[in-house]
Amino acid sequence: MAKVRGTGFAAVNYPTGMHLGGDPTQSLIHMTPAGDFVVTMASVDLGQGLRTVLAQIAAETLGVPYESIVVETADTDTGPHCTGTFASRTTHRAGNAVVMAAQEARKAMLEVAGELLEASPEDLETDGDGNIHIKGVAERSVSVGEVAGAAHFGYGKTIAGRGAYLKPPSPMDPETGECDPDSTQAHACTIVEVEVDTETGMVEVLDMKSVYEVGQQVNPDLVKGQIVGGSWMGIGHALYETTAPGYPAIDPAPVDFQNYLQPGASEMPEVTCEVLEYPAESGPYGGKGVGEMVTNGPIPAIVNAINNALDVRITQIPVTPEVILRALDEKRAQAGG
């Protein structure tokens, strides 16, 4: 009886979104009299930071400060259509829709600015700080706020844009099975070291190192948040969490957090991650999805590490102490034959 260590790894090839027989997200952007831009979406921010990311994308495309963007999300009764926040699709789908809407709104903004500056809209550029000026002539400038005032109260114009991103349906070729199911793919590899107590069956995840390739990161801190959170979820699924602890029997099922076990802060190892950026052609500014894949690598990596430590072949999750002790019993029985 001893504590033994093992190492395991897993690699992930993860699709961003699905075609779903046609998968749309739409976006509407309009300028307020104060010169702010409201981005209206039905997409939902689950806490992953979608509103932050969409505000960054809108600001970048419009050429205005991030602080002047207001993102309204999640009203599926009144907002422009979004299929939903799932399949790691929303940065990609909603981001692309926002780029399209922002391009149209920027064009409308530059047309009004052109009238104020007596210049062609094609000769204008934004400085990203809230000003529009004639290319190469910074002193021939108006502020975005002045443009907003002139549009609303002088010219009677809206400064607005529409965006409709659609991943088109992709029927499967009946001969070859070929289709185009997703928009782009992200990749990852996770290596885990565990220590298993062969007397109690308890597992401690000592170290978790990952490399992720997620296209161009729109917001690196939010990407890291997804990776660290997903690492924790992976530990939970690999070692603790189940709604059917006696599977295939579904009773008794845990009905509270005393019986539905999940890791706490003390079960969390130091998570190290590196992120590689290979921009996706189809993505908004090269972005792919990172949301779901972050749980997929850690789970098999942990199970592989346990198998490596014990020289057994466990293929179920969660790997509870009972699962480990039964696997060790079986191994001993076979050896003693």
């Binding site: 806490g47 948040g225 660290v228 959170g229 997903g230 690492s231 924790w232 979820m233 957090f257 999940q262 706490g264 802060a265 003390s266 969390m268 130091e270 998570v271």
Partner: peptide, 22 residues
Amino acid sequence: RDEIVEGLSGNLCRCTGFAPIV
């Protein structure tokens, strides 16, 4: 760090993986 982990042990988080909170 251990005292922080202990101090937060009654509180569950499903998103962050606890590391940023610690």
